[in-house]
């Protein structure tokens, strides 16, 4: 496809390039908004727009002050700490419970499989605002509103569908004769699980965990309702920033988060390849 065969007509040639231009524009539409904010985060002024100095590439128009502000401001630091506390805790719960359940679901005889699956996937399907409203009402009744535990539980629930989906997907390709072989050779179920099954489904577990992590790390609506000031997370602080005191510090935070998402993306991609490779060599 890369090079056009010699027999293509002019019309086909034009279409070929027009089509690629259209796709190029769409990809530009996807990526440009993210790239546009990165230079703005180095703006020396407190504005949300490109200054003439920035366009003229004047070095004085750029500065690191918004980054300094981010690292020196206690609100932002507290928000970052909260995010880094809540997201891993929620991820641990979703991954732990989710992996077990996914293994259970992948057995051949599971009663009410469809119904159970529907319930487990529901946090992904129910609109966030409804989940948040429900949790706000219910957690208020049981004393979890405004606590770390409440936010962590809420986020864990939201992350579970991702773990279920990715882990069951890895288990679909899992060859059961491997566990039987291990059992044959005298391994007990626990050893079998950790020595045989786990390494093979690990990529699925990790990428499910990353999805769960990013779900919690990026989540605003539930934490806005279920949390209180003590649990203010990074996205929450950004939401306030956008609504309340619009400052370019947000753009600095945004840039840091983009860097973080590139890291996560790379990890997930590497894991996916490893998983494919592992499955490629497994028999059957």
């Amino acid at each position: 496809m890369a090079a056009l065969p010699p027999y293509t007509t002019l019309g086909q040639r034009i279409w070929h390039y027009t089509f690629r231009t259209i796709v190029g524009l769409v990809l530009f539409f996807l990526i440009a908004p993210i790239l546009v904010i990165i230079p703005l985060s180095f703006n020396a002024e407190n504005f949300f727009t490109y200054t003439p100095g920035m366009l003229a590439l004047d070095s004085e128009a750029y500065s690191l002050k918004h980054y300094r502000d981010f690292f020196n401001n206690s609100d932002w630091q507290q928000a970052m700490r909260n995010s880094l506390m809540i997201a891993p805790a929620a991820t641990l719960i979703s991954v732990g419970l989710g992996t077990l359940a996914a293994i259970g679901l992948s057995q051949s005889h599971v009663p009410f499989r469809r119904a159970i699956m529907a319930i487990l996937i529901s946090p992904m399907i129910v609109p966030l605002i409804i989940s948040a409203a429900g949790m706000y009402f219910f957690y208020s009744r049981v004393g979890l509103q405004g606590t770390y535990l409440g936010v962590v539980l809420g986020h864990a629930a939201l992350g579970i569908p991702f773990v279920i989906i990715t882990v069951t997907a890895t288990l679909v390709g899992f060859d059961r004769s491997l566990t039987r072989a291990a059992a044959n050779m005298g391994a007990n179920p626990v050893t079998t699980f950790f020595r045989v099954q786990m390494p093979l489904i690990l990529p699925g577990v990790i990428s499910g965990g990353l999805f769960a992590f990013i779900t919690s790390f990026d989540e605003v609506v539930v934490v806005l309702f279920v949390g209180s000031a003590g649990q203010k997370t990074l996205p929450w602080q950004m939401f306030i920033g956008l609504r309340e005191q619009i400052s370019p510090t947000i753009l600095a935070v945004a840039t840091i988060l983009v860097a973080l998402s590139i890291m996560l993306l790379t990890t997930v991609e590497l894991l996916r390849r490893r998983s494919e490779r592992l499955r490629g060599i497994s028999p059957g």
């Binding site: 908004p33 993210i34 990013i214 950004m238």
Partner: peptide, 17 residues
């Protein structure tokens, strides 16, 4: 995938800009 993995608030702020 990059936009997919990027924070919703980052993308919303970008559109605001």
């Amino acid at each position: 995938l990059l936009p997919f993995w990027t924070s919703l608030l980052v993308r919303t702020s970008a559109w605001k800009v």
